[in-house]
Design a protein around this nucleic acid. Structure first.
Lengths: 195, 195
DNA sequence: ATCATAAGTGAATGAACATTCATTTAAATT
DNA sequence: AATTTAAATGAATGTTCATTCACTTATGAT
């Protein structure tokens, strides 16, 4: 036999994501993608069933990368303030280190494609977050509230801040500039709103 | 001469938005759109220069609808808490009354198309918000902070809450269900974080 | 060295695409 | 009623699209 060239699949995935971020979903055509990745169009179909399958694989990969980065150094036993701050830092790190993945994710999440894709949940991530929230409640570090209220207060301002800084941009390549002082300021106010 | 049939343009715009929300940008093709609106493809080109022009018109229309709804009953002289609460209510009303426009906006905003479109700013809206913020600062209703910090804290949780409730859904048609009690709870905590 | 097998290919296919154009239709003006 | 003019059209154009297929190539196993 002959084994698959992993490098080739990586290249296809990366170029696909880059094209989507830069030109939108329409901009990522199979033949254009083939040219960009220096393979034959038919080769793409060895690695992916079709265009939709490729998109779903990309989405799932991003979810995996995200939950890996987000859980780095994290434990549900951290104090609430430390744990949430670590989450913010990890999420910022994700955006900085994988800007294409982040932008692709945001685009995909806001498109109707998401309805047709069979999203695989990242269980590890979910259980960690649930435990973390339960501990914070038990220790009286935050007041009792609905989960949706917690998520909105704890992460809403963070992502708003990110979007605000992404406005000017196309920050691709160079490093994403967000003042740590401002991030910390917002964080302190958020902690206040959760108590 | 013969005058343009305004009803026809409305229908084209509405169907276009509906298609984009339901099937994504790729899903909105000119010939498909023509069929959906019961006109000839060529007719669309009487009202819009081309596909991109149509998309830009849709985007601008949404911006106008939004700022009109958002300013309803609003004045920079309102107390900070009343003014911000009215903003939240107006924004929720916009989402409820124009769900297609809202979803189209979110999709467009997160796509690279936004870079190519010449977005026309809604000055009226911007100046109102600026005055409102200045008054709140002057009266000591909120502490001094960077504009981006203010926006993140004041609206981040609101939109997070909306997205959270939009998860389950395709809420198109029927009314968008978000408990007023929960909205108020989050609002109160947000006010706390701004003081 | 040979074989078996899956990776990899370039060209081809038919469908869908945005846009145009020669023509017809309807309404306002005369 | 006749004239004018722009709205409105259906069919056509040339392009680009996702996908397939008959074929070639590389590689691990024998």
């Amino acid at each position: 036999m002959r084994s698959k060239n992993e490098h080739k699949e990586r290249l296809i995935r990366d170029k696909a994501m880059e094209m989507i971020v830069k030109e939108g979903f329409d901009g990522m055509g199979m033949q254009k993608l083939a040219k960009a990745a220096n393979v034959s169009p038919a080769t793409i179909y060895i690695y992916f069933k079709n265009r939709e399958d490729l998109l779903n694989h990309l989405y799932n990969e991003v979810q995996n990368t995200f939950s890996e980065v987000a859980l780095k150094g994290f434990s549900p036993d951290l104090s609430f303030e430390d744990g949430l701050w670590l989450q913010w830092q990890n999420r910022l790190r994700f955006i900085n280190e994988f800007p294409y993945q982040y932008q692709f994710y945001e685009q995909f999440r806001n498109s109707p494609l998401i309805n047709h894709s069979d999203v695989q949940l990242i269980m590890d991530f979910k259980t960690n977050m649930k435990l973390f929230l339960m501990n914070a409640l038990k220790n009286g570090e935050i007041k009792k509230m609905e989960p949706e209220v917690f998520w909105s207060l704890a992460y809403g301002p963070f992502y708003s801040l990110i979007k605000f800084h992404l406005q000017e941009k196309t920050m691709m390549g160079r490093h994403f500039k967000l003042s740590p002082a401002i991030l910390k300021t917002v964080f302190k106010q958020v902690i206040k709103s959760l108590q």
